[in-house]
Each structure stands twice: as structure tokens, then as C-alpha cells.
């Protein structure tokens, strides 16, 4: 049976843990707020790029060849991009991504496809490598505060692999940020780029309608003659494609960061509660010990007194 001193030292170490987890919760809360602000800050930029794309598409005579939008004829190899964090102690945040990735990989393999792994975040990279997978593109060391340059690096690597034919499709798996308490795993197709294909299709649809109704004063020519394009709209459109991927990945990184801090906050809060319960239990244990020791001493004194009389 542990002595009173042992129990005392255990209580103080649990109290320390409680203090640390409380500090971590507060840090996570502050970072969560910042991450939320950054998700908001990205919005006007993304909207401006989308609006510009629409205007550019209206101005082009024919939509140029955009390899990132084209579906590959045969899908043999699929890239899975897992967005995780660099650090643990955030509940199921990292493990649910890795689990979703593995489930998706099993599905793909059952369809006879090969899986190529990409990962962002130390946790994702190391747990994939631990399972013996080869991670083709690994990025880490920034998930506390991802910069747009990080998204650009990842987007560049993934897009290059797609265009150079190393993969035929890329899917992204990340924690979507709903609220500080809820994060849900999202699986989206990143390449071929559907979001932009949609913008193009919408714009093309409008052109077709106009062509059908009247031929002389098409809206497209109108636009083109009024605006100065530097360089040609076709070239601008080609440059806009990677921007879409970068924005999509940046948003996923930011949401993942916000989710990570949210998850860590709740994990730390429940750790504090557990520590509190443990302290209560240990305090009870210590009091019992002390009581037992006092009783023992009294009995010894009484026994000694009886022996003398």
C-alpha cells in the first residue's frame, strides 16, 4: 500500500498536468480564433478570383487546352492527399484522417487501382510511413500557422504529378471546420479540377444561348472589344487554373488548422476534468491513509500506557 507521502506526490503531479492542460486549452483557444479569422480573410480573395475567371472565360474565343481540368481516359493511379497536423494531443483529429485515408485506399485497391500517398503534417506523414507506405509528397512543419506559400508548394507538387501523368486523379481528405466542437472529415476530388470546370461550363452555356438567339451582337465580342487584356485572355485563363488549386488547398489547410485547435481545446478540457476527478480520488485515498496512520499511533500509545500500569 502506498504511503501518505507517495499519494501526496502523485496528487501534486496530477495537479501539474491539470495546469499544463489548462494552459494548452487557452493557447488552443487563442489560436483557434486566429485561424477562424484567416478563413474569413481568404474569402474575398477567392471570390475575386472566381469572378475574374468568369469574366475571362467570357472573353476567350475558344477555351484553351487546360490539362488540369481534363479527365484522364483511364484512372489507374489515384493520389490521396491527407491533411493532418504536426502535433498530437488533439483527440481524434489526426487519427480520423488517417483512418479515412486507409478506408478510401482499401476501396480503391478493391477497384484495381493503385494508390499514391501525399500528406501534409508530421502526424499524417509518420503514421503512413509507420504502416510501410511510401509517401510521394510530404510537407510538414507549418500546420500551426500555414502560409499561402505552403499551399502553393503542395498544389505545385500535386498538379505537376497530375499533368506529368504520375497520377490520374487526386482526392483530398481533411478536417472540415464546422464549429470549435465539431470537425467532420471531408473527402473531395481535387484533380481534375471540378470547381473551375463548372465555372467554364456555366459561361459556355451562356454563350450557346446567345448564339442561338441572335448572331450579330454577341455579348462575348462586346466584352472583348471594351477591355484591354494583357496578355490574351486565353493565357490569363491558363494561369488562373493553378490559382484555383492553391486556393482549395489553402482553404483545406486553414480549416484543418482551425479544426486542430478546436479538437485540442476539447481534448484538453476533458483532460482537465479527468485530472480533477483523479485529484478527488487521490485526496480521498490520502485522507484514509492519514486516518489509518493516526489510528495506528493512538493504538500504540494506548498499548504502551496499558503496559506501564
Amino acid at each position: 500500500m502506498a504511503s501518505q507521502k507517495d499519494v501526496k506526490s502523485r496528487i501534486s503531479s496530477v495537479k501539474n498536468i491539470q495546469k499544463i492542460t489548462r494552459a494548452m486549452e487557452m493557447v488552443a483557444a487563442a489560436r483557434l480564433r486566429r485561424a477562424e479569422q484567416r478563413i474569413e480573410a481568404l474569402r474575398p480573395y477567392a471570390r475575386a478570383v472566381r469572378r475574374m475567371t468568369r469574366r475571362t472565360v467570357e472573353a476567350v474565343e475558344s477555351i484553351p487546352n487546360l490539362p488540369l481540368l481534363e479527365e484522364h481516359d483511364e484512372v489507374k493511379r489515384v493520389g490521396l492527399l491527407l491533411i493532418t497536423g504536426d502535433r498530437g494531443l488533439a483527440g481524434a483529429f489526426n487519427s480520423q484522417i488517417v483512418r479515412a485515408g486507409n478506408r478510401r485506399a482499401a476501396e480503391l485497391k478493391a477497384e484495381g487501382k493503385e494508390v499514391v500517398w501525399y500528406a501534409s503534417g508530421k502526424r499524417g506523414v509518420s503514421s503512413l510511413e509507420f504502416r510501410g507506405f511510401d509517401v510521394a509528397v510530404a510537407h510538414q512543419g507549418f500546420t500551426d500557422r500555414p502560409a499561402f506559400a505552403n499551399a502553393r508548394d503542395i498544389a505545385g507538387d500535386v498538379a505537376t504529378q497530375y499533368v506529368d501523368g504520375k497520377v490520374d486523379r487526386v482526392e483530398i481528405i481533411f478536417n472540415h471546420y464546422e464549429s470549435p466542437l465539431t470537425q467532420t472529415v471531408r473527402e473531395n476530388v481535387l484533380l481534375p479540377l471540378q470547381e473551375m470546370a463548372q465555372v467554364l461550363a456555366e459561361a459556355e452555356g451562356e454563350v450557346d444561348e446567345e448564339d442561338a438567339s441572335d448572331h450579330d451582337g454577341s455579348e462575348v465580342d462586346h466584352h472583348r472589344s471594351l477591355w484591354i487584356y494583357e496578355p490574351e485572355p486565353e493565357e490569363i485563363l491558363q494561369r488562373l487554373v493553378p490559382d484555383f488549386i492553391e486556393i482549395t488547398i489553402f482553404r483545406a489547410l486553414l480549416e484543418s488548422t482551425a479544426s486542430e485547435h478546436g479538437a485540442r481545446m476539447s481534448a484538453m478540457r476533458s483532460a482537465q476534468e479527468n485530472a480533477g476527478e483523479m485529484i478527488d480520488d487521490l485526496t480521498l485515498e490520502m485522507n484514509r491513509q492519514r486516518q489509518a496512520e493516526i489510528t495506528q499511533e493512538i493504538m500504540e500509545v494506548v498499548a504502551g500506557a496499558e503496559g506501564l500500569s
Binding site: T56, A59, W227, I228, Y229, E230, P231
Partner: peptide, 19 residues
């Protein structure tokens, strides 16, 4: 700066889209 060179834009410029 655009791909073709430096660019300066003053007030009342014509509609422009530049990379």
C-alpha cells in the same frame, strides 16, 4: 509589372485585365 514590362495606371484608365 506584367509579362511584357512595367505598367503604370493613372486615373480614368480604360477597363483592363492584366496578369
Amino acid at each position: 509589372r506584367t509579362a511584357t514590362g512595367s505598367l503604370g495606371v493613372l486615373a480614368n484608365h480604360a477597363p483592363l485585365m492584366a496578369m
